[in-house]
């Protein structure tokens, strides 16, 4: 396959960025999208140019490091992570636009790499449980009803990639935060911090400069792990409940 790539190039956080056009040839349809970018970078290095910086780690679709907006879609046209997107989703001769996540809370560091530490601070605000650590407890010590376990697991699938923020026209982190809140709030292990968790995480989310939810549903469409939009409804419910219960 021969492709034309239009890639966002930006030297550093303070520099002005722009789209640059590159041609790549001999791309196999079995390559992953990141392998295609590796091919481009090898050529750039051989030509003595600066390779395109992009985030990646496990390349198995489970770490949440990769983060590209491909032709206007977070993680590209398939419902998966960029690393699990294959070039068979494109045609020979295609022009592909590659941009970084766009949100005020996710500033660009270089090229396609953005700073997602705002997510870490939301987790620090309440995305944990105060449990004694050490060896794993006996699995049946704390009974969890099956529907609750399923719900928690569905939300635990969130890998924190930030596609929801990238897709949201308001740069909101509602889907990410709600995945964490629902995951922990539904479980008995998360019960002691049920109220403070949702209040603190939502407050941190606001403080990081993420936008609010206008229920466009773009986040849930973009989510590679299929976190549903109703997750946000669940967090709203938890938040309202906590506001009534906790005197601040």
């Amino acid at each position: 396959m021969k492709l034309t790539l239009r890639v966002w190039r930006q030297k550093n956080a303070d520099a002005e960025g722009a789209m640059s056009t590159y041609e790549v040839d001999n791309i196999s349809s079995d390559m992953s999208f990141l392998e295609m970018l590796d091919t481009l970078n090898e050529e750039l290095i051989l030509r003595g140019e600066d390779p395109v910086a992009f985030d990646h780690d496990c390349r198995e679709g489970i770490c949440g490091a990769c983060s590209l907006v491909i032709n206007g879609d977070a993680h590209g046209p398939e419902r998966t992570t960029t690393c699990q997107l294959h070039m068979r989703s494109f045609k020979d001769g295609d022009t592909i636009d590659i941009e970084p996540w766009r949100a005020a809370a996710f500033p660009v560091i270089k090229d396609l790499v953005v700073d997602r530490s705002a997510f870490d601070r939301i987790i620090q605000a309440g995305g944990y449980i105060t449990a004694p650590t050490g060896s794993a407890p006996e699995a049946h010590a704390t009974p969890v009803p099956k529907p609750d376990a399923d719900l928690a697991f569905e939300h635990a699938e969130c890998i924190g990639c930030g596609a929801c923020v990238a897709a949201c026209p308001n740069g909101a982190a509602m889907l990410f935060t709600s995945a964490k809140v629902n995951h922990l709030n539904v479980l008995p292990q998360g019960a002691p911090e049920r109220e403070t968790r949702v209040l603190d995480m939502v407050a941190q989310m606001d403080e990081e400069g993420f936008g609010g939810c206008t229920l466009t549903g773009e986040c849930a469409t973009a989510c590679p792990k299929g976190i549903p939009l109703v997750s946000i409804t669940g967090m709203n419910k938890e938040w309202l409940r906590a506001t009534r219960k906790v005197k601040r």
Binding site: G72, D73, D97, E99, R102, C168, N170, G171, A172, G212
Partner: peptide, 15 residues
């Protein structure tokens, strides 16, 4: 106002 501020730069590829 908050929403617009949270997404200052638009995508080049619009959908």
């Amino acid at each position: 106002r908050r929403d617009i501020k949270a997404r200052p730069s638009k995508y080049v590829h619009k959908k």
